[in-house]
Structure formats: C-alpha cells, structure tokens
Amino acid sequence: MLTVDFDRLGIGDGAKVIDVGCGAGRHSFEAYRRGADVVAFDQNAAELDDVATLLRAMADAGEAPASARAESVVGDARALPYPDQTFDCVIASEILEHVPADDEVIAELIRVLKVGGTLAVTVPRWLPEQLCWLLSDDYHSNEGGHIRIYRADRLRGKITGRGMTFTHTHHSHALHAPFWWLKCLVGVEKSDHPAVVAYHKMLVWDMMRRPLLTRVAESTLNPLIGKSVALYFEKPVSAVELV
C-alpha cells in the first residue's frame, strides 16, 4: 500500500533514494523494485531487521534489477549520517507527525537531497486525523504516537520556507479513513470487534485484488476523506544556502 506516487518521483536505474522513517519498508521495496540504490532508514532496529530480510528476499527472487542496491540503516532522522546532496530522492512518509523536532528533521531531509532532486513528504490529513483524535485519546496518546495534526498548507510553508519549490499534492487511502474512525469508536485495542474484522477483510481484499469498484470509489473519495496528504517538492540551487 503506497502513499507516495512513484510515477512522480522519476526513480529508475541507479537513482539514489533514502526512505526516512521507512517503518515496514513499503516505499523502500518499491524504489528497489524500480532499480534504485535504496537506503531504508529508521530508528527501530527490530523493524529494520525485517526490512533487510525482505530486501534480501527480493534480490534472491530477482524482483529487483541486479544493478540495484539496498541497505537498511538504523539512525536518528535529526542527524542523517550522509553528506550534503547525497540523494536524488528523499521520501519521508508518515514520520513527521511522530517527531517533536520536526523542523530539525525537515532541514535534514533537504540537506541530503541533491539540487534538482525530489522530496516526497506524507502526513495524516487534517480532517480524518482530527476526527480520530476526537473519537479516541488512545489513538494518539501512546509512546511513539502522533503528537500533532498538520494542516497541509502550514507544512508546505515549513518546507518552501527553506527554499524548496512545491510541485504537487494529492490525497491517498480514502477507504482507510472510515476504518480508523470505526476503530476509534469501538476502541483502538479491540481488533477482534466484528465490525473492525469485517472492514479489515475488505481492505485486505482491496489491496490484494485491486478491483475496479474499490479503485473508483477510492479515487472519488480521496479528495474528500483521503487519510493521508502527500506533498512533493524540488530542490533549486537557492535552497542550498537556506539549509
């Protein structure tokens, strides 16, 4: 389940990509599949072990070009261990809402991006996220949980204020918003609730089969209730002086 639109990133053979806060690795896997040299970067060592295992399995199965490279790296997004202008593309999907020092992380994302490169940032969208917070404290008040709700225009301003050029935005995962509202309503820990189980089965069916009905429904609903908002930026020469 990708939140970032890879067709907008121009990732191909030999592109250098870092997926910051990669989590379970979904965007890293797609970049690797497209032939990029990928760094799956996260602070969670245990989760990164699983990501590394899957990257090796992809290589063994021939699911990525032989020329592509992939590695998993444990570290702090506030201090990325790479020189300035290392990567052609930087992805930060569903990470900034977890980070107290989001300005520090944004500065690092921009610093390691090459001039002319693309930055893709996604966060939970304001309205669906606001409803989750209103319905349940447990949804966000936990260790490592969401600490803020972004308005897309303010986040865009944080990034363009550092010299980046905004290029595009879209919303994703409209069918997932009601699922989280339902979970918040019945209790986020009650994964065995019959309504939650039934909705989850539908989401799994959608992800595995991608039927026309749900694809049309999601694309229609994304502008209204898309769970995530994705923002895309390009790094001009002038941004180097502002990082």
Rank of each mutant, 00 (worst) to 15 (best):
K158D: 10
M164R: 09
G145I: 09
M164D: 05
G145L: 10
G145Q: 11
K114R: 15
G163N: 06
Y150R: 00
G163S: 09
Y150G: 02
G163V: 00
G117W: 04
Q130S: 13
P128G: 07
A120H: 06
F166T: 03
T122L: 05
I149R: 15
T160N: 01
F166H: 08
F166L: 03
L127V: 12
Q130L: 08
E129Y: 04
I159L: 09
I159W: 03
R151L: 14
W133L: 01
L155T: 02
T122Y: 01
M164S: 04
G163I: 05
L131K: 07
T165E: 15
H146M: 07
E143Q: 14
L155K: 03
L127F: 10
I149G: 04
Q130I: 03
D137A: 03
V123A: 11
L131Q: 09
H140N: 08
P128D: 10
L113M: 13
H140R: 14
C132S: 03
G145A: 07
Y150S: 01
G116L: 04
L113S: 06
D138K: 10
R125K: 09
D138L: 05
R154I: 10
G163M: 06
A120S: 12
T167C: 13
R148D: 09
V115H: 08
L135R: 12
A152K: 15
V115W: 09
F166I: 04
R162Q: 15
C132H: 00
D153V: 11
H146E: 02
Y139N: 06
K114A: 08
Y150W: 15
L131D: 05
L135H: 04
L135Y: 10
T167K: 13
M164N: 06
W126C: 06
S136N: 07
V121T: 10
Y150Q: 02
I149N: 15
L119Y: 12
C132A: 05
I149E: 04
T165I: 06
A120Q: 05
A120F: 14
K114F: 05
M164I: 05
A152I: 00
M164T: 06
W126T: 13
H146D: 00
V115K: 08
L155N: 01
L135E: 07
R162S: 05
Q130P: 01
T118Q: 11
E129R: 00
T165S: 14
A120K: 05
D138N: 13
L134K: 10
R154H: 11
I147E: 07
R162D: 09
C132R: 00
Q130F: 12
I147M: 06
